[in-house]
């Protein structure tokens, strides 16, 4: 009997939460936004979500076979990537583009860089940007279920057609043109708060990101300084989706508290600059991806000092 005693390093007990539980929480947190998307944009939005998620899981499954890695679809991370990607699609996106996007996200951006925890760009966002560049028309056409197409709130703003702009309430609830999952600030906030309460994410990044965009647009987006409509900028477009769900992605953002704040502020400045000073109406995806690239650098310069210790020269 004695030779059967198992010997391993302490600690000998573990918390219950595993990777799958965390991914499941993210999925749960995205349910309200998905439901609102389907409510406003109709059953086609639901189909887009299902097709994209299935394609992402299939891509993960195939990638494991091709790359001879351990099968990881069980950890649900591919579902999260697929869902996030779908929520970043316009409801009218052709299904084949959605499928191509899922494969780009999983195979190219995630698995080729070593799989979960290793990729340096957010798979869903990187895929979205690649699709935007490749099929700009299909990726930015906003059609309501009744066939009427319209401009997103940020495009309206860009063109200076403020008379047509939706009110704050519509923006808050999500009754405006936009990507499936980005329009309803209310639903996204519910999900975001859920993640914070469950300690899946911290408040640092979302607060820093949204706060910076608010401050920046308040100062610079108006006719004169300090007159910008910051609330419109916060509620319109993909800011809340990006700040709570993409800029908090574990693999591609800094680990330390200080790092997260720097990351959030950087995202906020970049997103605002893109929105205000380039031809693009929306800058959240680009901003996050650019900051993803800077993550390693930020991590390197934010090594915390030990308890009671002096600051380490970086």
């Amino acid at each position: 009997m004695e030779n059967n005693l198992h010997v391993s390093s302490s600690p000998h007990i573990r918390a219950e939460t595993n990777t799958r539980d965390i991914m499941l929480d993210v999925i749960i947190a995205l349910v309200p936004a998905s439901v609102m998307g389907v409510y406003f944009f109709g059953y086609r939005a639901l189909l887009v979500i299902l097709v994209t998620v299935l394609a992402a899981v299939l891509a993960e499954y195939l990638a494991a076979i091709v790359l001879k890695r351990k099968q990881t679809i069980g950890d649900l991370s591919a579902v999260v990537t697929g869902l996030l990607l779908a929520l970043n699609f316009p409801p009218s996106i052709p299904f084949w583009i959605a499928i191509v996007g899922a494969f780009i996200a999983i195979m190219l951006v995630k698995q080729l860089f070593g799989g979960i925890g290793q990729n340096f760009m957010n798979p869903a966002l990187a895929a979205r940007v690649i699709l935007l560049i490749s099929w700009p028309v299909q990726m930015t056409r906003w059609v309501w279920p009744d066939g009427v197409s319209s401009a997103t709130p940020l495009v309206i703003l860009k063109r200076g057609l403020m008379a047509q702009a939706p009110g704050y309430l519509d923006l808050f609830l999500g009754n405006v043109a936009g990507c499936i999952g980005e329009t309803s600030a209310a639903a996204l906030l519910i999900g975001g708060i859920y993640l914070v309460v469950k300690k899946v994410i911290g408040m640092e990044t979302p607060l820093a990101f949204i706060g910076t965009v608010g401050l920046f647009t308040w100062i610079f987006a108006g006719g004169s300084l300090f007159t910008g409509d910051f609330l419109y900028h916060i509620l319109a477009g993909g800011l809340i989706l990006g700040a709570f769900f993409m800029a908090t992605d574990y693999s591609t953002t800094p680990v330390t508290r200080r790092g997260k704040i720097i990351f959030g502020i950087g995202c906020g400045i970049l997103a605002s600059v893109i929105r205000l000073y380039t031809d693009y109406p929306e800058g959240v995806s680009f901003a996050i991806i650019l900051m993803n690239v800077a993550t390693q650098l930020i991590d390197r310069f934010t090594v915390p000092r030990s308890f009671g210790g002096e600051k380490n020269a970086a």
């Binding site: 000998h12 573990r14 595993n18 990777t19 965390i22 979960i116 925890g117 290793q118 574990y250 330390t256």
Partner: peptide, 12 residues
């Protein structure tokens, strides 16, 4: 029994 190890997800 400690469950098997999987990849680090950088969750912090």
């Amino acid at each position: 029994n400690v469950p098997p190890e999987t990849a680090c997800i950088r969750c912090g």
